[in-house]
Design a protein around this nucleic acid. Structure first.
Lengths: 151, 151
DNA sequence: TATTGTTATACTCTATAACTATA
DNA sequence: TATAGTTATAGAGTATAACAATA
């Protein structure tokens, strides 16, 4: 049976995740930890609470991730300047270097994906990807709303 | 900053995984367990060894998955007819029903993804998705070969 | 000797609930 | 009262290594 668009998109998603993991070859960081560093790289120092929201994770999970990343020398905890309950998490120089390299790798990967598409198809391809993204986003928004009503 | 093609494709991959999980609303099966059932649905009864290869997992992990799926009534273990070391894993009627529903859901989802793309862009979009898939596949094949050489 | 699947052990991620120290 | 982050506890998935049964 021919693979459907769904099969292809699922396969692409999984290949991309592998690609991202392998790009940072010097590190043995897991995907959740890399994702946490990635968020911090773009947000600047934030509290664990806000990090948990950004990662769609529980505060407990974030505690574990930050514990591990602190031990490996990728993040530092410091007291929040105005709220003594909270903790500010920030990247170390080691992690910043890593994230800069990751950003470069992502840009190169993104360009190579675009190059893989025949020039005459590129615009239609990008529009299609965008439309599929938004249609999926709508599905999930609708579902969340329904879910809330059922409560 | 505008999202790149890479950002979009990664987001789509993650939304699709959520969608697939939620489609089987009657079940509380995790993604690895669903994936194991999905493979068995398409392969027919196979040994744990072959299942491990198909899932790119270790035999130990498969033991755990099959233990859990046996307890929940989704698979059965039976002796292999010609190799007394091996175990044949097969789906129960319950799991077959579930996989048939999953197949229907996937087909519907795939059609709705195609419908989300403007009609004049659909062919170019499908070609683009295919080309991106194969370019990523090539990257990984090349990398595996390099990896083997480095050994 | 090699292979199949197990037990033993350990690490990571996740979640809920109870707790503390602040706000 | 509510919030931030912790400890306590549990479950799922993964991996390596050693082992028994069988090929």
């Amino acid at each position: 049976m021919d693979p459907t668009i769904l099969d292809r998109l699922l396969a692409i998603g999984s290949l991309l995740r592998q690609d991202e993991r392998r790009a940072l070859h010097g590190t043995s960081l897991s995907e959740p930890r890399l994702q946490a560093l990635w968020v911090l790289h773009h947000s600047g120092p934030i509290s664990q609470q806000r990090l948990a929201q950004a990662l769609h994770a529980t505060p407990r999970s974030v505690s574990g991730l930050i514990d591990a990343l602190e031990r490996s020398g990728h993040v530092e905890r410091s007291p929040h300047p105005s709220d003594r309950r909270a903790v500010l998490v920030s990247l170390t120089a080691l992690a910043v270097d890593l994230m800069v390299r990751m950003q470069d790798d992502r840009l190169r990967l993104s360009e190579s994906l675009r190059d893989a598409v025949a020039p005459e198809d590129r615009d239609a391809f990008e529009r299609g990807v965008d439309e599929v993204f938004w249609s999926l986003n709508d599905r999930h928004r609708t579902r969340s709303v329904q879910g809330r009503h059922q409560h």
